[in-house]
Nucleic acid binder design. Structure first.
Length: 617
DNA sequence: ACCAATTGTCATTGC
DNA sequence: ATGCAATGACAATTG
C-alpha cells in the first residue's frame, strides 16, 4: 500500500520511470504482482492449500497402491507378478526394511538378494494402509503405462547398485525407508518394467525397445535391441522423469545421488504395482557396474528441464546409430547421458568405461553423444577426467571387482547392451585386474627403471584407460611403437570414429613424446654424467700437470744451480795472457746462438768494451 | 602436510 | 607440408 500510495503521488515522470523498471522486471520474468504484498500473501495461502490437497491425494494413492500390491503374487517360474487369487497366500514372512536391506545383495546366484517380492512386502509394511482391491495393472501387456511414481527429485538408482551384493560398497542397511526405497527402485526388474512401460513397446526378449526406432542401429543387428535401453537413457529418464529403467547402468549409477525424497515411496509404490508383471528374472541388476557413481547428471537434467524439455533434449542419443566399437566403448560405467562428468570426477577414465567418453557433448541436448565423431572426445576433455589419475586408477580395479559382475554382463540381457564391450575388461574383475597388471607391465617406458612398480603394475596408464574406454581395438604399445606405415595400415583396417582416431593419435603422440622425454632425460643424465667424468679427468689431468710442473720447476732449479756452478767453474779457470784470472765483475761469459762462448767485458763506467773471443769454450 | 625426485605432457624448434 | 625427435617448461605423481 505504501508503495502504491507513493506511486500514486508520484509525478508522471516518476510513474514513467517506475513503469520502465517494472517492464524490466517483467522482462526478467517478474510480474507486477510480485511487488504486491497482498497478492503475494494470497499466493502463499493458495500454495498452502494446494500442498494440503496434494498430501491428501498422496495418501489416497498410497492406500490404493498398497491394496493393489496385495493383489499381486510372484510367479516363481516367470518371476512375474501376477494377480493374487482372492484368498491367496499371505505375504511372505514379514521382513522389516532393515532385514530387506541387509539382504539386498541382488545377486542372481545367491538369491539372498532382495527380491522383488520382498520389496513389495517392504512397501506394504512401509505403508500399512487398508488394502483395497485394485485390479492389477498391465499384467499382460508388456508395455505397461509407467506411472510417474518417483518425485522429480528422486534420484534414479542404478541397477548396478544392487548387482553384486558383496562387492558393492557397503550399503547402509538401515531401516531407513529411504534406503529401502532406493533398493526397491533400483531393482532391475522394476526398472525394466518401468522402461517397458515407458517405451510402450514390448519385446519378446524382454528387452525394452527404444522408444525411438531410430535409436537402433540397423548396421548392427546384433545389438539394436540390447542397445536401445542403453542408448536411450536420457530419453527414458526424461520420459519418466526419474525412471531410469531405460537408462543403461551407467545412467543409474550416475543419476543416483543416494538421497531419496521421502515422497518417493508413494510414487514408487505405484510404479511397482504396475510393473511387477513385467519382471524378468534375467534382470539381476548385476553387471551394472557403477552402482556407486554419484551422479549429478540426471539430477541436473531433471531439475533443470521440464519433462518435455528433457525428452526433447535427451532423445537425440537414441537417434544416433552406434557402431559396434561405440557400443563397446560404452562401458557400463559410461555415462550414456553425459553423466560422465559426474563420474569422471570420481572415476576418471576408469576403464570401467566410466566414462571417458561421456563426453560433454552429451550435455548439449542437441547433440548426439555417440554419433560418429560426436563422442566429443577431446584431449582436454580427457584430461579433465584424468585430473586424478592416480586415485582413479587405484579405484579402477576396485570398481570392477565391486561393481562389475562378469557373469551378468554376459548373462543378464538387460545389461548386455553395455556388456557388449565387456569382453576386454569388464568380463571378470580378477581377470581384469590381471589384464591391468599385464598392460601396465609392458606399458613401461623404455628407460624406466626396472624397479618393480607394485601399484602401477595393477594400473593402467591414463592412455590405456582412455583406450579401453573408447574400446580401441589395439594396444597402446601398438599404437605407440608401430612404424608409421604399419600404424597407418592398422588404422585403415579398423573403422574408428573420430573420437577414437583422435585418441589414438593423441596416444601415439603422447607415447612417442613420453619415450622421447625419457630418452631426452636419459641423454641429459648421460651428458651430465659424461661431463662430470670429463670434469674429473680434467681435474686429474690438471693435477698431473701441476705435479709435472712442480717437478719441472724443481728440475729447472737444479739445472740452473748446476749451470751456475759450472759457469763459475769455467770462469774461474779462465786466464788472460799474463796468467791472471778475470774478474767476474769485469767480465762475463756469454754464449752465442751458434754455441760459441765469448768472454764479454762488463760495461761499467766506460762505454768502450773489449771483446775477447774465446772460441769455443 | 610438505618436499624432492620422478614422470607425463605440452609447446616449440629444428631436422 | 608433414612427421618426428629433441628439449625446455610445467604439472602431476610418487616416495
Amino acid at each position: 500500500m505504501m508503495m502504491e500510495m507513493e506511486v500514486m503521488h508520484s509525478t508522471q515522470k516518476d510513474m514513467d520511470l517506475i513503469d520502465i523498471l517494472w517492464n524490466q522486471d517483467i522482462d526478467l520474468g517478474a510480474r507486477r504482482e510480485v511487488f504486491d504484498i497482498n497478492h503475494r500473501q494470497k499466493e502463499h495461502e493458495l500454495q498452502k492449500q494446494r500442498e494440503l490437497e496434494e498430501e491428501k491425494k498422496l495418501h489416497l494413492m498410497q492406500e490404493q497402491e498398497k491394496a493393489l500390491l496385495a493383489q499381486l503374487q510372484l510367479d516363481e517360474e516367470t518371476g512375474e507378478y501376477i494377480p493374487r487369487p482372492p484368498p491367496s497366500a499371505p505375504l511372505q514372512p514379514t521382513i522389516t526394511p532393515l532385514e530387506v536391506t541387509q539382504n539386498a545383495g541382488f545377486t542372481q546366484d545367491t538369491g539372498d538378494s532382495m527380491s522383488f517380492d520382498e520389496c513389495l512386502q517392504l512397501l506394504a509394511e512401509t505403508f500399512p494402509v487398508e488394502q483395497t482391491p485394485t485390479p492389477p495393472v498391465c499384467l499382460d501387456a508388456p508395455a505397461v503405462s509407467v506411472p510417474m511414481m518417483m518425485s522429480p527429485k528422486q534420484p534414479v538408482l542404478l541397477p548396478a547398485t544392487l548387482s553384486s551384493g558383496q562387492p558393492t560398497p557397503p550399503q547402509r542397511m538401515s531401516p531407513d525407508l529411504e534406503e529401502a526405497w532406493m533398493e526397491l527402485l533400483s531393482l532391475p526388474e522394476l526398472q525394466q518394467c518401468l522402461n517397458m512401460q515407458m517405451e510402450d513397446t514390448l519385446q519378446t526378449t524382454t528387452y525394452p525397445l527404444p522408444a525411438n526406432p531410430e535409436a537402433q542401429t540397423p548396421s548392427y543387428p546384433n545389438y539394436p535391441q540390447v542397445q536401445a535401453p542403453i542408448f536411450n537413457p536420457l530419453n527414458s529418464i526424461n520420459n519418466v522423469k526419474t525412471n531410469s529403467l531405460n537408462v543403461g547402468p551407467a545412467e543409474f549409477m550416475n543419476t543416483f545421488d543416494g538421497s531419496i525424497p521421502s515422497v518417493a515411496p508413494s510414487n514408487a509404490f505405484r510404479e511397482i504395482k504396475v510393473d511387477t508383471p513385467q519382471l524378468d528374472t534375467s534382470f539381476s541388476g548385476e553387471g551394472f557396474g557403477g552402482v556407486f557413481y554419484p551422479t549429478t547428471e540426471q539430477d541436473e537434467c531433471r531439475s533443470q528441464h521440464s519433462q518435455e524439455e528433457n525428452e526433447r533434449m535427451c532423445d537425440s542419443p537414441n537417434k544416433v546409430a552406434f557402431t559396434q566399437m561405440e557400443l563397446y566403448s560404452l562401458s557400463p560405467g559410461d555415462s550414456f547421458d553425459g553423466s560422465k562428468q559426474s563420474l569422471t570426477a570420481e572415476h576418471l577414465d576408469s576403464d570401467s568405461g566410466v566414462s571417458t567418453n561421456g563426453s560433454p557433448n552429451e550435455r548439449s541436448p542437441g547433440r548426439s553423444m555417440y554419433g560418429s565423431g560426436s563422442f566429443g572426445y577431446s584431449d582436454s576433455e580427457m584430461e579433465e577426467m584424468d585430473q586424478n589419475p592416480g586415485s582413479v586408477q587405484s579405484d579402477y580395479s576396485e570398481m570392477f571387482s565391486l561393481n562389475f559382475e562378469p557373469d551378468h554382463f554376459m548373462v543378464s540381457e538387460p545389461v548386455s547392451e553395455m556388456t557388449e564391450q565387456p569382453q576386454e575388461h569388464e568380463k571378470k574383475p580378477k581377470q581384469f585386474n590381471a589384464d591391468l597388471a599385464e598392460d601396465s607391465g609392458h606399458d613401461g617406458a623404455p628407460f624406466t627403471k626396472d624397479k618393480p612398480k607394485k601399484r602401477s603394475d595393477v594400473r593402467l596408464t591414463r592412455d590405456e584407460q582412455r583406450a579401453k574406454s573408447l574400446n580401441i581395438p589395439f594396444t597402446v604399445d601398438m599404437i605407440i611403437n608401430l612404424p608409421v606405415d604399419d600404424f597407418n595400415e592398422l588404422m585403415s583396417k579398423h573403422q574408428l570414429n573420430e573420437a577414437q582416431l583422435a585418441l589414438v593419435r593423441d596416444i601415439r603422440r603422447r607415447g612417442k613424446n613420453k619415450v622421447a622425454a625419457q630418452n631426452c632425460r636419459k641423454r641429459k643424465m648421460e651428458n651430465i654424467v659424461g661431463l662430470e667424468g670429463e670434469l674429473d679427468s680434467l681435474k686429474e689431468e690438471r693435477d698431473h700437470l701441476l705435479n709435472e710442473k712442480s717437478k719441472n720447476m724443481t728440475s729447472l732449479k737444479e739445472m740452473k744451480r748446476q749451470l751456475n756452478s759450472l759457469y763459475l767453474e769455467v770462469f774461474s779457470m779462465l786466464r788472460d795472457e799474463k796468467g791472471n784470472s778475470y774478474s767476474s765483475s769485469d767480465y762475463s761469459l756469454q754464449q752465442s746462438t751458434d754455441g760459441t762462448v765469448f768472454l764479454v767485458p762488463r760495461i761499467k763506467k766506460t762505454f768502450r768494451s773489449e771483446k775477447k773471443h774465446l772460441s769455443p769454450l
